[in-house]
């Protein structure tokens, strides 16, 4: 087991093959659940890239998710071929992240967080109010064939490929000079600047990468649900990946994967059986934050390392 922690590439490859096999074998209900879960993993991983490695806590990551949804949904509705529309979604999100990002990275810490929140609220309001274009609260439906005509299983595998691809992109960035510089700025902007790195520029690049990956997740979500609602850019959708990142564990690459599984699993089960399920979720988040700052992934790592001889 230790080898999985030591060699994330091996772990990732195994996880990919295992996930693909599960998707091939899963029944219809589980296929749906797992497809949605994979989208959430990608969304949470994009936010984790910002929080854990770039030192930027965003309270408004749903803006890019939501714009991914609407970029795709609106262009598909306008008659753009689906294959092009699925690219327009992430592009719109990337473009928005480039503009909002340029504004947000001018501030630090909590001020940065508040600004990301404000940007997301503006996005939500525009989507919500621009009735003629977006249909407001009614949302958009029937803009694309169900599962993009790939069948539920085919679509699930496409989502898996995108999710794995997104994680791979994050991994490659982190292993490249850019990743080292992003981590440096995230950890100690003063030192990074004194070495010659521009804090704002580096943070902007990280913000755009995170935003575009969230846009991919949003596009997939919209295609999966077959609809687009203003809520997809709203507070709840900003909060959910934040909870996943915290549950999974800050500062790790696989944290958001575990976090998304735990969050979706818990909310799925709890909301089914308990009326005050959100209260219980809150307690779980608090417990994890207090007793295991490195989240469930940190817990798993500790268990694995205990079973293995120390190096």
């Amino acid at each position: 087991m230790n080898i999985l922690v030591r060699h994330p590439v091996v772990a990732g490859a195994l996880a990919f093959v295992a996930s693909a096999s599960i998707l091939v074998l899963a029944n219809d209900v589980w296929l749906m659940r797992l497809t949605e879960l994979l989208i959430w993993i990608l969304f949470a991983a994009s936010l984790n890239f910002l929080i854990s490695f770039s030192g930027m806590v965003s309270f408004g990551h749903a803006a890019y998710f939501g714009l991914g949804c609407y970029g795709f949904a609106l262009s598909a509705k306008a008659g753009v071929p689906i294959i092009v529309a699925v690219m327009i979604g992430p592009l719109v999100a990337t473009f928005a992240a480039a503009i909002y990002g340029a504004l947000c990275v001018r501030l630090n810490k909590i001020y940065f967080a508040m600004l990301t929140l404000a940007c997301a609220e503006i996005t939500y309001s525009v989507i919500h109010q621009w009735y003629d274009l977006t249909g407001g609260d009614t949302g958009l439906t029937q803009f694309a064939p169900p599962s993009l005509d790939l069948g539920a299983r085919g679509f699930a595998l496409l989502v898996l490929a995108c999710c794995a691809g997104g994680l791979l992109v994050i991994r490659l960035v982190l292993n490249a000079p850019l990743g080292l510089v992003i981590r440096s700025v995230g950890e100690n902007p003063g030192r990074a600047a004194a070495l010659g790195f521009s804090q704002r520029q580096v943070q902007w690049v990280a913000f755009v990468i995170a935003g575009s990956l969230a846009g991919v997740a949003g596009t997939l979500y919209s295609a999966f649900q077959g609809n687009a609602f203003p809520d997809y850019a709203g507070m709840r959708f900003s909060l959910a990946p934040l909870v996943m990142v915290i549950l999974g564990g800050l500062g790790s690459f696989f944290g958001p994967v575990i976090g998304a599984i735990v969050e979706k699993g818990l909310t799925g089960v709890l909301s089914h059986y308990v009326v005050f399920w959100e209260l219980i979720m809150g307690v779980v988040v608090i417990t994890v934050t207090v007793y295991s700052p490195h989240g469930f992934w940190g817990l798993i790592k500790r268990v694995i390392n205990k079973g293995a001889p120390r190096g």
Binding site: N175, P177, L178, L180, V181, S184, V202, V205
Partner: peptide, 17 residues
């Protein structure tokens, strides 16, 4: 990180750098 600064390859995506 300091050497990357000196080399000016901070935005590179290639780990070979």
């Amino acid at each position: 990180a300091a050497c990357v600064a000196a080399a000016g390859t901070g935005y590179s995506l290639f780990s070979s750098k």
